[in-house]
């Protein structure tokens, strides 16, 4: 397989079109179609399995993780279970963790803030957050987060006092992380559903803080 690096969109061009481009399909697209057809013909899976898999992917969103965070904030016993075993705690909420690797829940405090990166590729807690955003996979985020975490956070509009320790955790294929942000002021008395609305994907990666209500 060859191809000039500029013939197709890459991680360096996040403005590349979302829809399939007009014109002849790229070698990569042809390769995927050819492999998929051969595997279906060989009986490894059916075309319907591919469709089903895409539906599952589309249905997995950061709302799952936000539910976990809200329960973590409001239920002390659940918090303990989540800190002991993140995967079991997510499964408790009905989230399918059957093929997910180990999940570690990282609790932010007034003195400690966690940021998640995957310097080697793009390992991400997909089961609770869905697919990672493009920037999480970008060379700049992967290279810089471990050496200039405050600078990276500033680009996301997040600034923390100097006495807050920033701890960067590097995900692996076998271990993923979910950040539980500090519960914001003014959220006392809110129920779990409302609390979940204060938490975004980026908050659970650790690049932003929970929204104040």
């Amino acid at each position: 397989m060859s191809g000039h690096p500029h013939d197709h969109h890459s991680d360096h061009d996040p403005h590349a079109p979302v829809e399939e481009v007009e014109g002849p399909p790229s070698e990569h697209v042809l390769l995927e179609i050819a492999l998929r057809e051969l595997l279906i013909e060989k009986g490894l899976f059916a075309a319907a399995d591919v469709t089903r898999q895409i539906e599952i992917m589309d249905a997995t969103t950061p709302e799952q993780g936000a539910r976990l965070v809200a329960k973590f904030w409001t239920d002390p016993a659940y918090r303990q279970r989540a800190l002991a075993d993140g995967k079991a705690a997510a499964a408790e909420l009905g989230i399918d963790m059957s093929v997910a690797p180990k999940l570690v829940i990282l609790e932010n405090t007034a003195r400690l803030h966690h940021v998640v990166v995957c310097t080697l590729c793009s390992c991400y807690p997909r089961a609770v957050l869905g697919l990672p955003p493009a920037w999480y996979k970008s060379p700049a985020y992967r290279a810089r987060t471990v050496k200039d975490s405050r600078g990276v956070l500033a680009e996301f509009g997040t600034s923390l006092p100097d006495d807050v320790e920033i701890r960067v955790v590097d995900s692996t294929a076998d271990c993923r992380y979910l950040v539980v942000p500090v519960r914001p002021h003014g959220s006392e008395g809110m129920d779990e559903a409302a609390l979940a609305g204060l938490v975004t994907r980026d908050t659970m990666i650790g690049v932003t803080l929970a929204r104040e209500p």
Partner: peptide
């Protein structure tokens, strides 16, 4: 870091 959102193709 280019923070533009990018929907899956």
């Amino acid at each position: 870091i280019d923070r533009a959102e990018h929907a899956q193709t």
